[in-house]
Design a protein around this nucleic acid. Structure first.
Length: 237
DNA sequence: TCATTAAATTGTT
DNA sequence: AACAATTTAATGA
């Protein structure tokens, strides 16, 4: 694709600040850190650009520096199924990178995003050399498994307010997305795409959650006030 | 730095 | 889907 090669051409090394913000970098020894830092590249992707597509061979393990991505696949009927959003601080694709398989889903930006890539070979080299890195990846896989099980629960709920709450809780996950912090930069339109509801309904749900005191709605973003309440909304208690 | 204008986002029907 | 209101970003004096 034109988009992908263009993305490739736009790569540049990471700045010191960007490197320092990567959660697993601080776990590495000096030479491991050096090797990873040399290999890491970052590129800016415009709205709607694909970072990887189903069936393409794995070349990178990706991390979101800034922006917002979505993970999805297209089913046989041609409908797009969105699995999750990936906010800043999130690293993904280790499952397929481990097996050196083809990507099993599409990763597309919801808005302009800066995305870092570590080459699969370097990813494997780190696995072979750093126990701390192995722990990080294991923890990452474990945490995401919990999230996907929770996602099945979300799918079986028909209450839109609860769906929005749970989806938000997933995006605010501090283990998987340490770059998010207290404020998630996301528009109500973007959240609507991720949750699979209309923007109007999302707006309504956000107002409900605000009334319950679990979030604060800000222009172009949301502030979490009570993450536990999002995970278990009062309508379920 | 301030005022004006355009663009993006939100709230509502 | 459409519209008005609000907030932010961009522009130029």
């Amino acid at each position: 694709m034109i988009q992908e090669s263009a993305l490739h051409a736009r790569r540049r090394p990471l700045t010191e600040a960007e490197l320092a913000a990567i959660p697993w970098m601080r776990l590495l020894s000096e030479d491991e850190h050096q090797r990873a830092a040399t290999d890491l590249k970052v590129a800016e992707a415009g709205p709607g650009e694909f970072l990887c597509r189903t069936g393409r061979p794995v070349t990178y393990w990706f991390g979101v520096i800034d922006g917002l991505l979505k993970m999805s696949t297209d089913n046989a009927q041609g409908q797009t199924i969105t699995y999750t959003g990936i906010p800043p601080g999130g690293w993904f694709g280790e499952g397929t990178a481990l097996k050196r398989e083809a990507y099993r889903y599409n990763i597309q930006t919801l808005r302009i995003s800066r995305v870092a890539g570590l080459h699969v070979d370097t990813f494997h080299w780190l696995l072979d050399h750093s126990i701390a890195f192995n722990r990080f990846v294991m923890n990452q896989l474990n945490e995401r498994l919990a999230q996907f099980i929770a996602a099945r629960e979300i799918d079986r709920m028909n209450n839109p307010d609860v769906r929005v709450a749970r989806s938000l809780a997933a995006l605010f996950n501090p283990v998987l997305y340490p770059g998010v912090g207290q404020v998630l930069r996301i528009t109500q339109q973007e959240l609507a795409y991720l949750v699979g509801l209309s923007r109007q309904r999302v707006n309504e749900a956000l107002n409900t959650l605000h009334a319950q005191g679990s979030i604060r709605v800000e222009y172009g973003g949301l502030r979490v006030l009570d993450l536990a309440a999002l995970r278990t909304p009062s309508t379920m208690r």
